[in-house]
Design a protein around this nucleic acid. Sequence first.
RNA 1: GAAUUCUUCUAGA
Length: 315
Amino acid sequence: IITYGTLINGLCKEGRLHEAKDVLKEMLNRSIVPNIKVYNTLIDGHCRFGNMQEAFSLLGEMQGDGILPDIISYNALINGLRKVGNILEAEELWNRLVDEGLCPDVVTYNLMIDGYASSGDTLKALQLYEEIEKKGLEPTLITYHALMDGLCREGEMQKVEQLFDAMLKKNLLPEAITYNILIHGYSKSGDLQKAFQLFEQMGQNKILPDEKTYNGLLKGLCTEGKMQKANDIFVQMLDRGVNPNANTYNTLIDGYCRVGNLMEAFKLHRGMVEEGFTPDVLAYSELINGFCKEGKTQEAELLLNEMHEKQLLPP
RNA sequence: GAAUUCUUCUAGA
């Protein structure tokens, strides 16, 4: 049964949901009784690809087999609803699981906190955070990540700082992702000094920056039009063996367009192709926008045509 | 005891 579970998990993670369900049918045919983990895996698989209807029908099937959903089943479903932005139904599920005598665990809290925080309701997110300890649970790194990321988006940087301190006081060690959230947040809020300070702190803690870390720094520099510094950082990134991704190029292209340096923007567009990236609609839009702003509409049209040839749809 | 759930990056408008 573990073999079946592993197989179903693998198929679900790859989005091969039909095949995963076929495996479930095969199990039933062979009179192997699927347990709750198998069902939870399937429920989660459908949730993460947005197929909530099927996820709920699997929940029903499971109950039909006499298996009661556990907190993990509910967490998977709440996660699915949160992903499609349906916080209201997520709240209903929360009430339902409590009615059934289950207790929300820290994952349930993290899910709802992220749901509220990333939809801009930082107040509710913070309220839930306060509730965690009252229920005798301990916030995790992920709790802080979800909260800080939401607060960063809203520009509530003083609260971010407080939470980061609170997190350290609990002896939760920051990881690369922690710094990525913070660096990106400060970078976007225009506090490049703080962003670079954290970048240094990250190095002191022997945490290696990844492409997202650099993208965060580049985003701030590009927004401010500090393209010489942005280029230095880009070079440092390459020197340290961190591979840029499509976002890295998009960020830089946009930065060069903003300052009217279309030559560099165009070179990067080319570089992107040479590195094996397919510029997406976004990469084209930025350039086309840049050319338009400079009044170079014929170049913009050429790019638009090229984009169409590649069968990319205009935004 | 590791078969199942949570967190981070890109344009314009």
